[in-house]
Every structure is written in C-alpha cells, then in structure tokens.
Computed example of a mutant assay.
Amino acid sequence: MPSPTMDAVREALARVDDPEIRRPITELDMVKSVDIAQDGSVDVAVYLTVAGCPMRDTITRDVTRAVSEVPGVTAVRVELDVMDDDQREALRTKLRGGQVAREIPFARPGSLTRVYAIASGKGGVGKSSVTVNLAAAMAADGLRVGVVDADVYGFSVPRMLGVQQAPTQVDDMILPPVAHGVKVISIGMFVPGNQPVVWRGPMLHRALEQFLSDVFFGDLDVLLLDLPPGTGDIALSTSQLLPGAEVLVVTTPQTAAAEVAERAGSIAVQTHQHVVGVVENMSWLELPDGSRMDVFGSGGGAEVAARLTRSIGAEVPLLGHVPVDVALREGGDSGTPVVLGHPDSPAAVALRGVARQLSQRARGLAGRKLGLSPVAH
C-alpha cells in the first residue's frame, strides 16, 4: 500500500474540531506540524490553547482516529504543545472576527442569533427546567445553542445539564463547557462547592456583561438566558446589554403565581422588548387511570397571556402546557434533560413543542441594518 500523502492527512485533520470552540483545528492554527515516515507512520504535533487543557485527551483521541482512517497510515503518534502569548492573541482576534476589543456579539446590528430571556415572576415555577430542556431540544434538532445562567444567586443550570468541567480560560477569553450539544456558562462554575454569591447590583451587571462579551460562544442560532425571578437588576441589565432579546414568561396555573408572572412580562413595556409568549408549567398531574388532577389550579397561563396582550398591545400567545412529570424532575437531578432521557414522556413532548415554535421564528428586524439608502427625488 502506498504511503499516505500530506494532503490526505491534512484533509483528515480538517475534520477534527476543537471540542470547546467547535471549529476545525486546522482553521484555528492548532496543527503545529505533520511528519509522514516511509513506513506509513504519522507524527502530528498539536498546539493546545493553554497548559493543562481539560480537553487534551479528547483532542489526542480525535486526531488519532481521524488520521488512522487515511489509507496507508500504519500508526499515529500525537504530540501536544502549548500556544505562546502571540499565538493566543492571534486566536482570540480570529475568533472575535478581527475585533481586538471586547464587545457583545449578540448585540451587533447584524447578529442572526435569536436571544430569548426566560423570565418568571417568582421562584419555584420551573423556569430553569424549562430553559435547559428548550436548549437541549433545540440542539437535538440541529441548532447551535448557548445558555447563560444569569440567575447568579440561584444558579442551577450546570447540574441540570450535567456540566462538571470548568470553563477553559485563554487569557481574557473564556471557552464554555459543552453538554448535550449546548454551550453553557454559569457563575456556579467559578464558585467553590455550594458557596453562596453575595453581590450587589453593579457586580451583577458586570458579571452578566462578562458572560456575554468574554465568553466565546461562536456562531449561535439561539441564545437562552435563564434570568433570576422578578424584575430586578439582571432583568434591567439584560435589556441594556441585549436590547434585541425577546422575553419568554414561565408561570404555573396558580392565580397567585400568574399575577406575579404578569409583572415579569410587563417590564418589557418599559424596556421596549418583545414578549414572545408564555409557558405554563406544572399544568396538571396525570393519574394512573388517565384522568388529570389540577394540583396548582388551572388557567394561569392563559390568563397571563391575555393580560399581557392587553397591557402590551400586541398578541402574547400561550405556547404550551407542561404537565407535572416525575421524569422532568429526575432529569434535572441527573443532568440529562427529559427531552433527551425520556423523549416520549408528556413533559418532554410539551417542551419539544415549545422549542420548535421558538426555533422556527425568524429573528426580528429591530436594530438590524437593512442595507437601504435613501434616494432623493
């Protein structure tokens, strides 16, 4: 068998993605050298972004597998090196599209990413469960999805998505962990143990700003923000940093919860944001005989949607009812969202339905450059 060619080996390496950045290692200038011996053995040297990179074993495995599939290759040896400061600076500039200064890519006028801020009036209505399952369902449908756990005081997204590894920091740029095809960042990844976060408003704003500007999500189709309950600092910061974000309100059927949820949606009138819809969680409990028990009452989601429609002056639809489902709770505890672990369960079916409605919506034109020039007559 003839020896493998350099073109064939480099073509194989071009199919190897960096597991954190999700782009080919050849495109990222991570391939240091390739040497092919007469006996068909191949030595590949790969640059890591930082020393002690948590994905070093994954990169070694993927490079070995890809090159081994090239006809004529008899053995593959992978050597790992580390980028120097200049190489890392060049990588950061490339990833930021040539922009050296920090900016929020999702706030650019030309951004095609749909941004949904998941809000609730009070805690305990399942807002985070809805967020992670919408993200997992969208990613399973082939979309590029990111999640920002903006609930700084009550962060829970890492556990619900099964994220255990810490983000990789390349100087002032952070590469978020990926779980179930979703890129995710949370303050919980930077807090040791279960230590509480005790911050005032300005620190909350700065933390959210860093998550949006310093974390490299890449090109996303959808970005979901799990907001803290209520209408406090983070909700206001979100409207300032991401003026094009749309609000999704989560409530339960209970009248008291629905009244509070309406406030969370009504803040969009003051911040000039669009409310994309309402999701009613814990809608009912299905009993063994097939009947339904309205544990938390009924009609809260429809009432919130109707009230917001009247106060905002634009239609706010009720996008779905999510029933009480043990599998939903178990998925949150185990780190496998119910839409993946039990896709045929009632909650999973309802959540996938909501996810597809949001996925199929086109991004609005607000804040975008249309490429039009006025013509004088």
Rank of each mutant, 00 (worst) to 15 (best):
I312G: 04
I312M: 13
A314V: 11
A314T: 13
A314K: 10
A314L: 09
A314D: 14
A314E: 15
A314P: 00
A314R: 12
A314I: 08
E315I: 00
E315C: 00
P317F: 01
P317N: 03
P317M: 03
L318H: 09
L318T: 05
G320F: 04
G320Y: 06
G320R: 04
H321I: 00
H321A: 02
V322Q: 11
P323L: 13
V324T: 15
V324A: 13
V324C: 15
V324N: 08
V324E: 05
D325V: 11
V326P: 13
V326I: 15
A327W: 07
A327L: 15
A327C: 10
A327F: 05
L328D: 15
L328K: 11
L328V: 13
G332E: 15
G332A: 13
G332Y: 13
D333G: 08
S334F: 02
S334V: 12
S334A: 13
G335Q: 12
T336M: 05
T336P: 01
P337V: 08
P337R: 05
V338L: 12
V338C: 10
V339F: 03
V339P: 03
V339D: 06
V339L: 05
V339C: 03
L340S: 01
L340Q: 02
L340W: 02
L340T: 01
G341S: 10
H342D: 15
P343G: 01
D344A: 06
P346F: 13
P346M: 14
A347K: 06
A347P: 06
A347N: 08
A348L: 11
A348F: 09
A348K: 09
A348N: 11
V349Y: 03
V349M: 07
V349P: 02
L351G: 07
L351Q: 10
R352I: 01
R352T: 03
R352N: 09
G353K: 01
G353A: 03
V354L: 08
R356L: 06
R356S: 07
Q357A: 00
L358C: 02
L358S: 02
L358E: 07
S359V: 00
S359G: 05
S359K: 02
Q360P: 00
Q360H: 00
Q360D: 09
R361M: 10
R361P: 00
A362E: 14
A362K: 06
A362L: 08
A362P: 00
R363G: 04
R363T: 10
G364D: 14
G364A: 12
L365P: 00
A366P: 00
A366M: 07
G367E: 14
G367D: 14
R368N: 05
R368F: 03
R368K: 06
K369G: 08
K369F: 11
